[in-house]
Design a protein around this nucleic acid. Structure first.
Lengths: 295, 295
DNA sequence: TACTTGGCATAACTGAAGGTTGTGGCTTTG
DNA sequence: CAAAGCCACAACCTTCAGTTATGCCAAGTA
């Protein structure tokens, strides 16, 4: 089974037609047709049955499907990896971070960095933690910043700063005198809340805490990012649990915030591949982030 | 990164030289040389550094190595699968079983099967349980027979027969009057024993039981198959824990055997893919195995 | 029914990729 | 110093993946 046939097979299955597959692969339809026939001849059985002029995957084709798709995926990853490896060192600092940090913290760090390294080119991605791991492993990026970054398999993890989980609320929700006092988690029972879709180590941890409350908080909206939660809270939709960076975003104008009384801290972490040691720019960047975060 | 380059890369890494790789791929050395150069040109970085006329993998190459080898392996599996799929139904009964069963049970079942289906062609493999799973999933074989076959992910499991774990010993080890009586596991403490290398669900279970004995049994020899254990016991090397089929192999001439007092039974299981239902021959075969096993 | 449209297969042709043999330079080895 | 092993270069050849042009078939549509 040549790679060419594998790609074609995959293309036909995804597009649903030979012509579609041909377009996807940037070849003409007859070329695809011929290739498919060759593939089937070599295999010794039909991959598609031609019924009423259309292609329909055979039983055997469906058996092969998963394996082939896995191979395609791994080939794609390999491509990404090799593409990034040839570009290595063209950019001394490639950072990926969660959307919240991208807005609250990282831009400041980058502008500060420019004072010491004016000519440096920087690449900044925002990704959710799951994708971040991929991106680091494929050398697409060098440093990841995340909250509560659980030490994934092959990545080093360096804690930069600890903070408290914050509860944010529409203005006027709490008496101003109480804002300093930590809010017991039980006080959230039955309250209207904005949920954070679990996908983040911190997010899932908070979810499990909230799940134990009775009566359960009323979460009518569930969002993907802390910023969206912040925005919704500002509009009076309810309370939300967020990291300190998001909470403090606009200087506390649009929302009220107070710490949540919880044993667990939010930990801002840098993660990176342990094999490739950080260069001077990268180290400097991390120290800047640490400084900025600790305020 | 073309598949051709991936194969070449892998071949060079495994053989250690370009010429070796060329031989492995059945092409001439210059062809390999040219292909490698093309690959490196396309990638944008060197895969091997030419040092004193030899190839030496670069740092980047080593980073790619694992991924590429994984892809190669999956491609090989795909090849095996497709090869078997085209041959499907040419052989109505393809069985794989552990070495012990291959000797003690399966041959009898096959000869019995011939009485009902004289013309049937049968393929018989002997494989250890880990490989068995692969083989079934790749459609190389239809039925697997194993002891204590723990229900692997995607395979159906059908228990055929239950028996006791047996202890075998050199002749004259126990008084003949005691042979019927189950041996308490504690009696094995400090005894010389033949170990079964863990790789089998049954084997690992027995291992963990033995590990709790004090003083630990003295296992100077460790073997891969129950038959080897049987042979060594017959030569007076010590005791061994085996399945009932191996124990009974030569009619109890060369060794003594007695049941082990254990809550856990040995379960002879058939495993097969749940998607493809068994045909008549296969069903008949399993019922024969069940009959034979229950004696 | 007649016409259009979308999809697959066939035919004849073309170019580049991948193969070959032959050769030469460079090491390591006895 | 000769021999052997390994890699790179050159010139040439074959194959095969790609092209355009065309035809057939089924299904939708006026």
């Amino acid at each position: 089974m040549r790679l060419r046939y594998i790609e074609l097979f995959h293309a036909v299955l995804t597009t649903g037609s030979l012509t579609g597959a041909a377009n996807l692969l940037n070849i003409s339809q007859p070329a695809a047709s011929k290739a498919l026939q060759q593939a089937e001849q070599q295999l010794g059985f039909a991959l598609f049955s031609r019924v009423r002029g259309r292609l329909q995957p055979t039983e055997q084709a469906l058996l092969l499907r998963q394996r082939i798709e896995k191979i395609i995926q791994e080939l794609n990853e390999l491509q990404r990896l090799t593409a990034n490896m040839s570009l290595t060192d063209s950019c001394p600092l490639r950072v990926t971070c969660t959307p919240a940090l991208a807005e609250a913290l990282v831009p400041n760090a980058i502008t500060s960095l420019r004072k010491t390294f004016p000519a440096t080119t920087v690449e900044l991605f925002t990704q959710h933690s799951a994708v971040m791991y991929e991106s680091l492993m494929l050398h697409e990026t060098d440093i990841g910043l995340t909250l509560q970054g659980t030490g994934r398999q092959n990545l080093s993890r360096e804690p930069l700063c600890r903070g408290q989980v914050m509860v944010i609320a529409p203005p006027g929700w709490w008496p101003v005198t109480e804002l300093k006092r930590p809010l017991p988690i039980a006080a959230l029972a039955g309250q209207p809340m904005i949920g954070i879709a679990v996908q983040d180590a911190l997010g899932s941890m908070l979810q499990s805490h909230l799940a134990q409350l009775a009566p359960a908080p009323r979460t009518s909206v569930r969002v993907q990012t802390y910023q969206l939660a912040h925005a919704l809270v500002a509009q009076g939709e309810g309370l939300a649990l967020v990291d300190p960076f998001t909470a403090r975003r606009d200087g506390g104008k649009a929302v009220q915030m107070r710490p949540l009384d919880l044993r667990i801290d939010v930990v801002l972490c840098a993660i990176y591949r342990p094999d490739s040691p950080l260069n001077a720019v990268q180290k400097r960047f991390l120290s800047l982030v640490r400084q900025l975060a600790q305020r």
